[in-house]
Design a protein around this nucleic acid. Structure first.
Lengths: 145, 145
DNA sequence: TATTGTTATACTCTATAACTATA
DNA sequence: TATAGTTATAGAGTATAACAATA
């Protein structure tokens, strides 16, 4: 016999299923936590890049986040509409838009950072701190290939 | 100062980024491996459920995989077109379709099972077997909440 | 010619609503 | 009335191609 029909076909045996649904659940948690700040988890990644380091062009932000530059346009359109970021042409290269947090954007990010941390901690609350650290380390190792 | 502008904003600090991109990479690997069999990783999950246990209705398969029944329709349309599964009305309740693997479907699944295992192992090759086991266990614990 | 931002477009995935046939 | 399967539709997410402005 080629397959064991007495064994249950548990989708949780598949690593892809585990990764996908863990991500779905975490995203739902963080989105819910960030909602009152007017952003979601995808926006948070962008704000995080803008809050650290030097002012960057749209393309630089997009590349840091591994998203397409056309996707970046849509994210920034929304954040700019909400008064969280501003775009201005780079005087040194007028093809580029320098993107920066507004004062409101900076405050939003500070609140979002705490909210995101809480959501991630809540998600990880049922596993030991050691297992959570190991999870991050293993996932990083897998992506560093 | 509310944020440390000297720290790099590494997206890999965010668990959501790690989960998403680990899944993207694994899916790309498994899809590539399964391609010569005419299926992808999403089809594989369905075949796996059909290969184990008793013949099931579309809805039962969908629920086991946590996918919507409308999504199941599209997956089965394609698998039936390829001669991998057949649908027949349940004599005991003609609203239901019993879904089964064809002989070709059974052979496809047997080959796919080996291919999927190889792809998953290749993905996990750079981390220790212990870390890989721990990864699965932690993700399961997180989903069992 | 190449690059940045933009727009248009398409393709996948997912969810909802409404329809049909059956119960 | 409720359920299983189907269809239509719409919304996110993502990718490609083409265009305008600038280098």
């Amino acid at each position: 016999m080629s397959t064991d029909s007495s064994a249950a076909a548990d989708p949780r045996d598949l690593l892809g299923y585990l990764l996908k649904h863990a991500n779905l659940r975490l995203t739902a948690l963080t989105d819910a936590t960030l909602e009152r700040l007017g952003i979601d988890s995808k926006d948070f990644g962008t704000l995080r890049v803008l809050a650290h380091g030097e002012p960057a062009s749209q393309l630089q932000v997009a590349q840091k986040l591994s998203v397409d530059r056309t996707t970046m346009v849509a994210i920034l359109d929304e954040l700019e509409r909400k008064g969280i970021v501003v775009r201005r042409p780079d005087p040194a290269d007028r093809r580029r838009n320098i993107v920066e947090l507004t004062e409101h954007g900076r405050q939003t990010f500070d609140a979002a950072q705490a909210a995101y941390r809480d959501a991630e901690n809540a998600f990880l609350a049922t596993v030991s701190p050691r297992a959570a650290d190991q999870l991050r380390r293993t996932l990083r190792d897998l992506l560093d290939q």
